[in-house]
Design a protein around this nucleic acid. Structure first.
Lengths: 197, 197
DNA sequence: CTGGTGTTAGTACCAAGTGCTAATACATAT
DNA sequence: ATATGTATTAGCACTTGGTACTAACACCAG
């Protein structure tokens, strides 16, 4: 790489290290055609930590993420109250990662996921499956919004093993999502296996 | 910690390092009340790499995950073919993390997410929002299944800025999911901003 | 010519190791 | 009882990728 000014080099240094935190001072030095000492001085001025610290940071972030990313797929929203076969509430805080970058509006499937999860949870059965759903996205939801969702069991059909659930999601007391879920359950109502957890 | 046999110690060593990869040999030595050298020999036998390598591994995994975990939230399924405002296909490989532990059946919201993502993608517009959806989960989908989804634009309503899309998902040529999506778009058909990417 | 900025070189030191040799303890086998 | 094997410990030289510091030089501007 051609030798440039200090400013330019430091700008590139920041970028380069950001892209590849695993790069050593020696590699950087030969990349920018300066001495290792110059790179060290640059890192000092820009307060960029040494290689091993950088790697540690990345690794530490990873451990956080492991705890963070699992629940995203498992249950969407936190269930705050539940009365089996009757109704249930959950809260879902919309974050940056749930919205379209372009316009900041939450992707529909996250709202669906919250509603669907709640519909599954409210059913007092080991095996509850969604058969059909009609959903309406009434109002856009944005990052920072707290979505409060209520699922109500409307109807149980013992013969067909079906449960019909209405779900309504609100942000600031205003409806943002409505859904009707038709759920399939293996066992009849009130004959559950108590050994299950 | 009490001194025990080599076997026990090595078992615990494996576990301890797995739980906290950031621990040094010195810390381990005092934890197990043996010398640093013993710890080193143990690591050799168990082929556990040194601290800095362990940290690097964790960090490297992280960088993978960054590439890996973003699309999970951003787009569900990989789009394999698309003709804007007409049709699109995507593939979604169902993994363990997408299914109920209890019965191995995919949670409905993942299939919904794939379908919804595809419906958004097929629309040739910066801002496409789901207004309404009617979906049917025709057959259970299991871990290991490859879901192939097709979205077809059925109808465009210029006046209401609506697009109606039919989505069908198959596993092994058998329909597992059907959905009708009513989408809202900001711009009229064929008047898009070409500067956007 | 003097000063400030930028750069380079070199030294001592550190953490957390590897790799190797050697010593010691202790039980087991012959 | 002595020899052998396994487990443990100690010590030393060396490695990587640095920190912290000092000294030297080049250049450009006032």
């Amino acid at each position: 790489m051609k030798r440039t000014t200090k400013k330019e080099r430091q700008q590139l240094l920041l970028q380069t290290i950001d892209e590849n935190p695993f790069i050593t001072d020696e590699q950087l030095a030969s990349l920018f055609n300066v001495s290792v000492q110059t790179i060290r001085l640059d890192r000092m001025e820009l307060s960029i930590p040494e290689l091993r610290e950088r790697i540690k940071d990345v690794a530490a972030k990873n451990l956080e993420n492991e705890v963070k990313s699992l629940p995203i797929d498992e249950i969407i929203g936190e269930i705050i109250d539940i009365e089996l076969d009757s109704r249930a509430f959950s809260i879902f805080d919309v974050k940056e990662e749930h919205v379209f970058q372009r316009n900041g509006i939450a992707r529909g499937h996250h709202l669906f996921a919250q509603a669907n999860s709640l519909a599954v949870a409210v059913i007092n059965d080991e095996l509850a499956l969604t058969v059909r759903a009609n959903v309406l996205f009434a109002k856009p939801v944005k990052a920072g919004d707290r979505v409060i969702t209520k699922a109500t069991v409307r109807e149980q059909n013992k013969d067909k093993n079906r449960t019909y659930i209405d779900v309504i999601s609100n942000v600031n007391n205003s409806v943002v999502f409505k859904g009707e879920f038709e759920m399939y359950r293996t066992k009849g109502i009130g004959e559950n296996d108590e050994t299950s957890n």
